[in-house]
Structures are given as structure tokens and as C-alpha cells.
């Protein structure tokens, strides 16, 4: 990687476009608004992610810290409740996990390939006071 110029690529390198499936667009639309095809909302940046946040509803207290501090508008909040993570626009930065105040955290980062059920099954339990 060190010796490649701006116009050279490693053999087997993948160049991504913005195009990709935006599958849960219905879940993330604000109710009373119409989007055009040219809104970046219809694009997909999930390729950027190497780790993903997993949301555990059991521990969430709906404080909305993750909503306000998410740089990619990927936390879906409906009726003052945290509903889930928009996986088409999440870039996997991990801010939501850092700002989550619950114990144990209701959002944790996992590797992209791990299934959500597996992640939820192995959720850490409450940490004692140190």
C-alpha cells in the first residue's frame, strides 16, 4: 500500500460506488416529507463500515444522546423513543456507543460479519462499581 500512487490500485482492490441497496428506507423516512432521488438519503455508505453498532432495546432509557451526537443521522427516533440504527447510512464511527449512559450499554460495536442475534445473546451484564 505504501508505494501506490493516486492512480494505481492494488490487485484485487475494490472501488465502490455510492450505489447500493437502501433497504429500510421506509423505516427511516420522516412522516411528512418527500425526498427526491437526488437526496443523499437515497445513497448508501454502509460499505465504509468495518464495525457496526448493535442496539439492545432492553437496556435503552430513550435519553436520545445517540440521536443528537450521531454525525450520520443514523439513529432512528420516533415519538421520543429510540427505534434502531439506520444501517444504510451508519459509517461505524462508534460515537453512539461512547455517549450511551446506561450500564451495561444499550449500544455496542461488533464486527460487521457478526449476526445481530449472536451479538444480543452474548451481551455483557451490569458492571459493578469499581
Amino acid at each position: 500500500m505504501a508505494n501506490t500512487g493516486w492512480d494505481e490500485f492494488e490487485i484485487g482492490a475494490m472501488l465502490r460506488t455510492f450505489e447500493g441497496s437502501v433497504d429500510n428506507i421506509a423505516g427511516t423516512l420522516q412522516e411528512d416529507r418527500n425526498y427526491t432521488q437526488n437526496s443523499s438519503f437515497s445513497a448508501n455508505v454502509s460499505d465504509w463500515r468495518i464495525i457496526k453498532p448493535v442496539f439492545n432495546k432492553d437496556y435503552c432509557i430513550d435519553c436520545q444522546f445517540c440521536w443528537i451526537y450521531c454525525p450520520d443521522i443514523s439513529i432512528i427516533a420516533r415519538d421520543k423513543k429510540m427505534v434502531g440504527v439506520d444501517m444504510d447510512h451508519c459509517k461505524g464511527c462508534g460515537i453512539c456507543v461512547e455517549v450511551c449512559p446506561t450500564n451495561p450499554k444499550s449500544l455496542l460495536m461488533f464486527d460487521e460479519h457478526i449476526d445481530e442475534e449472536v451479538a444480543l445473546a452474548g451481551w455483557p451484564t451490569k458492571e459493578g462499581k469499581k
Binding site: V45, W48, D72, D88, K91, G92
Partner: peptide
């Protein structure tokens, strides 16, 4: 909107 190209 999301899918802007700002760094994570």
C-alpha cells in the same frame, strides 16, 4: 441527510 461523505 445521511450518506454525506464526511469522515466517520
Amino acid at each position: 441527510e445521511g450518506a454525506n461523505l464526511l469522515c466517520p
